[in-house]
Design a protein around this nucleic acid. Structure first.
Length: 778
DNA sequence: TTGTGTAAAC
């Protein structure tokens, strides 16, 4: 303790060395006793110290005891006030204190209003700062940039930022980190480029902020450049920067480079270790990930939630038993049983193991659902084919006002695409626009795919054309979209544009192009593409490509050539090629090649009921009924169930599903009446029942030569009743549309003057005025 | 500064 002879300055120096609030208060009382009443300077120091040791109530107490605080003292208090509502009420007390806010006052108040639940106080501070004449202050500008991006308002953020005359490093960093918080990774890389060209110098924060964005976009070249910049500016060994580099290299697949940097760290902290552990994990190196984890335990380190989140994904290949026994148990033992990120990682693993029940259980029992956990559940549903569940969960989010991010809408759109739910897909598109979510390459590709799969190929193309950062996946989605719609020529045209743009085709690209040729009947073009695969594009054909070639040749009626292709080129290509050949035999009503193909298939995949159905139908089509019956008997004796056909139609935003011979729908009678009315008109127009169609139905006995009304006809009739004349009708069928339904739909489109769009298991059919876009080639 | 969740063909 100082004695009476101590000067005012010795109190100051004591304050700066004090660590506990008690100690600070002792000094304060001592100074008062010894006649040194706490003046402004002394109080300011005290407040600053109390705040940095998180004793906010004490600093507030001290502040209120000071009769005439100055602005500097006020700002010091404001800067360290943890609660946004408290700092807002402090701000409004300025007039009582006869103080005028300066730029620091505004920027501190704005910073804390970023964590206020509503954006209004921050906006009003923005307005008041302009009225006070600070419209282009760099400090306020940075704080506002940050504030607006915290409320996902990137338009306002950019406006504010552009008003800063000479943005400094901190301003740029605020913009960058805000964009990244909003998942606007590609945009952040553009801003980073602008920052670089402006000549603004980087600080360690700049590197720490931009490296995750580079990692996210997997742009290794940019990562290397930034690494060089960091080395040149002498910041490459700062701990935050190294961690960012380790993570960036791992995510770009350069895990050995990451390890090299890691080994160079003298005493790696927990964060660096976590980055390295997850680096091995994303690169599927179980051994090294676990061994680093062991190192951590060996030095007595305590794993953080990030350690577990980083390590958990590597365990999914071990299978369910291991996970539930060890990992889930370990998480609970470590006290992370209510930690949202850790539980989200567990959910993802369950989902990858197709154990949706467990994933769902973790999700619904989570005490606090984060955005990531909502996303994990939606994508778990979407990836496991539970499309309605995925969509309904997204609708729940909307109802609960949980704001989606690009990841959320990407998964939801994927569900819409699978389901063919166009109206919901459009609704999601509107949400993306209204909420100003970043249209990153994932979102735009998902939109392209959704529009294409839901039948709106023009809208798909519109999105495709307006997408700036297309990658090969976007091109693939668009090309396969054309294939789906039977437009082989557009698919080939786009493919050649892609080659001109010097984008290397992947095996998926080539498969999509081949399918488009096959669906469009472009045999020679398809053969040329197949030839070019290995020779020009260094892609070796896989079983799918071979099957597609068989499909291409077989559909065109070249069954012998297709068989030869299998026996000479596509040897050991598996069941796919034979299935394609069998399908082609059905189209051309050919039994001898079909026998060879089906025998192969019964041998390769005896459990697949589809082949028995197909073979039996081929016999029936050729009036070889005893053989047909025999095949069906075999299938029956093996207890093989066939997939029931069903058709979906959307009226408004509601989906209606019909099965074959369905009489469950409330409007059943009206539907039957409509069908009778239609049949009469169709027969008048020349329609005759295709008898072969009856033979598609293996479960129907021959006693009935009548076709049980297939689900697509029910759905079309239902659509006709419930929509205005002239509206187009869109239906989605899970199996391939049968010959009779295809023919009937042509007539329906004619007699009702409607455009009818049918999506079946493999492609789209646009029926208009008695004709189908597939040219009866399907 | 690390960690969760995302699109294309079959």
């Amino acid at each position: 303790m100082p004695n009476r002879s101590h000067s005012f300055y010795s109190y100051l120096s004591l304050i700066s060395r004090s660590t506990t609030p008690l100690h600070l208060l002792q000094i304060l009382s001592h100074s008062i006793i010894s006649g040194h009443h706490p003046n402004l300077l002394l109080s300011t120091h005290l407040i600053s110290h109390l705040s940095s040791s998180h004793h906010h109530s004490l600093s507030l107490l001290l502040f209120s005891s000071i009769p005439n605080p100055d602005l500097f003292l006020f700002n010091t208090l404001l800067r360290s006030t943890p609660s946004p509502s408290l700092s807002l009420s402090l701000f409004s007390s300025l007039p009582h204190l006869h103080l005028h806010p300066n730029p620091f006052t505004f920027s501190f108040a704005i910073s804390s209003s970023s964590s206020f639940p509503s954006p209004f106080p921050g906006r009003s501070l923005h307005a008041r700062s302009i009225l006070s004449g600070f419209s282009s202050d760099p400090f306020i500008g940075s704080a506002l940039t940050n504030f607006y991006l915290n409320f996902a308002d990137s338009l306002s953020a950019h406006k504010v930022f552009d008003r800063i005359p000479q943005p400094d490093t901190v301003s740029w960093n605020s913009l960058l980190s805000g964009l990244i918080k909003n998942n606007a990774f590609s945009q952040s890389l553009i801003v980073f480029n602008r920052m670089f060209s402006s000549g603004t110098s980087f600080d360690p924060t700049t590197f720490a902020v931009i490296l995750p964005a580079i990692a996210e976009s997997q742009d290794l070249n940019l990562g290397l450049e930034v690494h060089c910049l960091a080395v040149k500016s002498g910041m490459a060994s700062r701990s935050h920067v190294v961690t960012g580099l380790i993570s960036m290299y791992s995510k770009c697949g350069e895990v050995s480079m990451a390890r090299f940097l890691f080994n160079d760290i003298e005493r790696p902290d927990l964060v660096a270790r976590n980055a390295m552990i997850s680096g091995y994990s994303v690169n599927q190196d179980v051994g090294l990930s676990v061994s680093l984890f062991r190192d951590l335990m060996a030095i007595g380190g305590k794993p953080s939630s990030s350690t577990l989140v980083g390590m958990i994904p590597v365990f999914s290949p071990f299978g369910h038993g291991f996970l539930s026994r060890c990992i889930h148990g370990f998480v609970i033992k470590c006290g992370f049983d209510s930690n949202s990120p850790v539980l989200t990682a567990i959910m993802t693993v369950y989902s990858r193991l197709n154990d949706l029940d467990s994933a769902q259980k973790v999700f619904y029992e989570m005490p606090e659902k984060s955005l990531a956990s909502w996303n994990a559940m939606i994508s778990a549903y979407a990836q496991n084919g539970l499309t309605e569940m995925a969509i309904s969960l997204f609708q729940d989010m909307q109802a609960l006002n949980v704001r989606p991010n690009p990841v959320t809408v990407t998964s939801t759109l994927s569900a819409c695409a699978q389901l063919g739910a166009l109206s919901i897909g459009k609704w999601v598109h509107r949400i993306i626009t209204e909420e100003d979510l970043e249209l990153n390459v994932f979102v735009s590709t998902a939109l392209i795919d959704m529009y294409a799969k839901c039948g709106n190929i023009k809208e798909a193309r519109k999105v495709f054309d307006s997408t700036k950062d297309k990658n090969v996946v976007s091109w693939n989605a668009m090309i396969s979209g054309y294939g789906l719609h039977g437009d082989g020529h557009q698919a080939l045209k786009l493919y050649s544009e892609m080659l001109t743009a010097r984008i290397a085709p992947t095996s998926v690209t080539l498969l999509s192009v081949l399918y488009a040729c096959s669906h469009g009947g472009l045999v020679e073009e398809g053969e040329a593409v197949f030839e070019s695969m290995a020779s020009e594009h260094e892609v070796n054909p896989g079983p799918e490509h071979y099957a597609c070639m068989v499909d291409l040749l077989g559909r065109a009626g070249k069954l012998k050539q297709a068989l030869e292709f299998i026996e000479t080129v596509a040897v050991d290509a598996g069941a796919g090629v034979w299935a394609a050949l069998l399908g082609a035999c059905m189209k051309h009503k050919e039994t001898s090649v079909a026998q060879i193909a089906s025998n192969k298939l019964f041998e390769l995949e005896p459990e697949n009921s589809g082949y028995y159905v197909l073979m039996s139908n081929i016999y029936s089509a050729n009036r070889e009924f005893p053989q047909a019956a025999m095949v069906r008997e075999t299938a029956k004796s093996r207890n093989l169930a066939k997939t029931p056909g069903c058709t979906l139609i959307e009226i408004g935003e509601k989906q209606h599903v019909f099965t074959s011979g369905d009489r469950c729908h409330p409007q059943t009678e009206a539907i039957c009446a409509k069908l009778e009315e239609l049949t009469a008109k169709m027969i008048e127009a020349g329609y005759r029942v295709e008898t072969d169609a009856a033979l598609y139905d293996v479960e129907e006995e021959e006693k009935e030569h009548m076709v049980k009304v297939h689900s697509e006809k029910l759905a079309i009739a239902f659509g006709l009743i419930n929509t205005e004349p002239g509206t187009e009708i869109r239906i989605i069928k899970n199996l391939r549309v049968c010959l009779d339904c295809h023919n009937a739909t042509k007539f329906i489109s004619k007699v009702t003057e409607r455009l009818i769009v049918v999506r079946d298991a493999t492609r789209f059919h646009h029926f208009r005025d008695g004709l189908c876009s597939c040219g009866d080639y399907w």
